[in-house]
């Protein structure tokens, strides 16, 4: 056996074959992932494949949330409510029936969405009487949204109160068709969205929206309103 042939065989054995096996494994896993394992693998995969690649966000990730607070009053004083910086965790979003649970941050930059669900700064926090819009990745926190149904209860926990919303409907559309005037309506509702389809390796150009109406939770009142009801 020539020396050159021996080197070629070694290269094939130590580099080529491992690469070949790696490719096969990835292909098999990708197939299994898309068809069977998505609910179980998504949280792990989401750690590596979220967002649109390298992020240059300068958002600082921190938290002002120490756990849910159950407020039985119908109102909460505005002085107890902090407007968080973008990147600050201020609550959780949960839908028990479908097993959805995610940390809730203010802001929805790439960096923030790597850590959890993000509230759009173009919407207001729960309790102000206006819509709250929250997004998260469809292969991580919001992968279970595909199972949501009308009538499901979504709960948003914050450090100043707990808010429950009943799902009133869902909608699939392209992002540019979303009417952001909805965010200015004086209506206590939750708008949740993620990319659609859920299990898709190709370019994702649609969004899955969930609309839910508030059914409980304290209203935030300011001094100018007389301090409560």
């Amino acid at each position: 056996m020539s020396k050159r042939h021996s080197i070629g065989k070694k290269v094939a054995a130590y580099v080529g074959m491992p690469l070949l096996f790696w490719l096969l494994i990835v292909a098999v896993l990708a197939t299994l992932y898309l068809h069977f394992l998505h609910p179980y693998v998504a949280p792990i995969a989401g750690m590596f494949f979220t967002g649109s690649g390298a992020s240059t966000d300068s958002v600082k990730i921190d938290s002002i949330y120490d756990g849910p607070v159950l407020v039985h009053e119908r109102t909460v004083d505005a002085s107890l409510v902090k407007i968080p910086n973008q990147g600050t965790k201020y609550g959780e979003i949960v839908c028990e029936r479908i097993g959805l649970q995610a940390d809730l941050y203010f802001g929805e930059s790439e960096e923030i969405l790597k850590h959890g669900a993000g509230q759009s700064p173009r919407s207001l926090q729960p309790g102000f009487g206006y819509p709250t819009m929250i997004s998260a990745h469809n292969n991580k926190e919001f992968d279970k949204l595909e199972h949501i149904q009308e009538g499901d209860i979504i709960t948003v926990y914050t450090s100043y109160g707990t808010y429950e919303y009943e799902v009133s409907g869902t909608e699939i559309m392209e992002p540019h068709l979303f009417d952001d005037k909805l965010l200015l309506e004086e209506r206590s509702r939750l708008i949740v969205y993620t990319c659609y389809p859920f299990n898709n390796l190709g370019y994702i150009y649609r969004r899955f929206f969930v609309y839910a109406e508030q059914i409980s939770g304290p209203r935030i009142v300011f001094d100018s309103e007389g301090g409560g009801e």
Binding site: F49, V59, C195
Partner: peptide
Amino acid sequence: AVIASVDPVIKFTGADYSM
């Protein structure tokens, strides 16, 4: 801290497998 951004209203929230 960032207080506002000029960017699209609806964000990209899908997995990016390009890498």
